[in-house]
């Protein structure tokens, strides 16, 4: 009896195992994602997982903002993965007030008194610097 039950469980397990792998690869389309990742270099992989548009802005911010400076993020949902990734990529720059720089993502033509644009990637992505 135990043997028969075991065989049924094992058979169902194997069928589900194969199905779940196929589901992940083909229905959830991870194969496509892997193909893209394989074709990219180290930076390209980071860009893909972060989102190309956000990664481009963060790279520009790393170039424009000195390491000891502070920044504020505008257009990022509080506690979102994008905001966490931004904090990760921009460290040792800290998100802290008063901010030396403002990084704008997804808000068109953002303006704040006392800050001037130093880099504009497109109308929704910009880096602003505190004016002296």
């Amino acid at each position: 009896m135990a043997n028969r039950v075991f065989r049924i469980i094992f058979l169902v397990w194997i069928v589900l195992w194969v199905y779940l792998i196929a589901r992940e690869l083909f229905i959830k389309k991870h194969v496509r994602e892997y193909a893209i990742l394989l074709s990219r270099d180290y930076e390209g992989k980071h860009s893909f997982v972060t989102g190309d548009r956000l990664y481009e802005l963060l790279q520009a911010s790393r170039k424009s903002i000195p390491q000891e400076s502070t920044y504020r993020l505008i257009g990022f949902e509080d506690g979102s993965l994008d905001k966490r990734r931004a904090a990760y990529y921009l460290y040792p720059r800290l998100e802290k007030e008063p901010a030396d720089y403002i990084i704008v993502y997804g808000l068109p033509e953002y303006f704040e008194a006392g800050y001037g644009i130093i880099s504009q990637l497109d109308e929704k992505r910009a880096i602003l610097k505190k004016e002296d």
């Binding site: 892997y34 990742l37 394989l38 180290y42 992989k45 980071h46 997982v49 972060t50 993965l81 966490r84 990734r85 904090a87 990760y88």
Partner: peptide, 14 residues
């Protein structure tokens, strides 16, 4: 194939 990218992995550990 992927750099560290999931939520806690980035926000807490990496």
């Amino acid at each position: 194939i992927k750099p560290i990218e999931s939520y806690d992995a980035v926000a807490i550990y990496a």
